[in-house]
Amino acid sequence: MFLDFVEGPLWYAAAAVFLVGVAWRLAAIARAGLKEDLSVPRTAGAPGAVATVFRRFLPHREFMRPAAFQMVAGYAFHIGLFVLVLFAAPHVEFIEQRILGFGWTPAPHWVFLLAANFAFAGLLLLWLRRMLDPVLRRISTLDDHIGTGLTFVVMFTGCMALFESHDFLRALHMLFVDLLLIYFPFSRLMHAFTFILSRGFTGATMARKGVSA
């Protein structure tokens, strides 16, 4: 019954909030528009935008050492998370049955385990550093902690439900997934989409100015 609710009405509501919310946020950013650039561009903006989107996947050479921790833990978390979300067998099954109508080959058990370990270790280290580092502690808001916490709880309940024999645990996981989807568009979790816009904007601006960035 609980499972029917969180996988039924609540799931549809959460998915709708997520889709509409993300579209609305992106539309709002697009509607805000750009200030007209009156100067003559030194190089074209578009290639610079695309290049920067990719270039920023690594920190700048000068910042490689100070940013090493964030890079390693961040990639461990994000890559782990992507593998979990997209290739865990129950997720593929859910996507096939409830979302897309088609699925793909799920990751084998050991890949899943490795991904989960990397994701948990990365997320915990990043979250703890946010709380311990004096600089990060000051620039973090409640939103950061709610977003990180919700992600952690979703992952945690997901691995609680790994045994796949108790509906209650699956329902608990789904409940937090629903909450995360509802929270997503109105938080910094939106960086999953907006990082392209911000990097692209920076890249285009810099390219027009003829700055290598």
Partner: peptide
């Protein structure tokens, strides 16, 4: 308790390999 134990077993097994780190 079966629900609790199943969850605990999976958590224990999954967090175990993080412990060496």
């Amino acid at each position: 308790f079966s629900v609790t134990a199943a969850a605990c077993k999976e958590i224990h097994n999954l967090f175990g390999p993080i412990f060496p780190l």
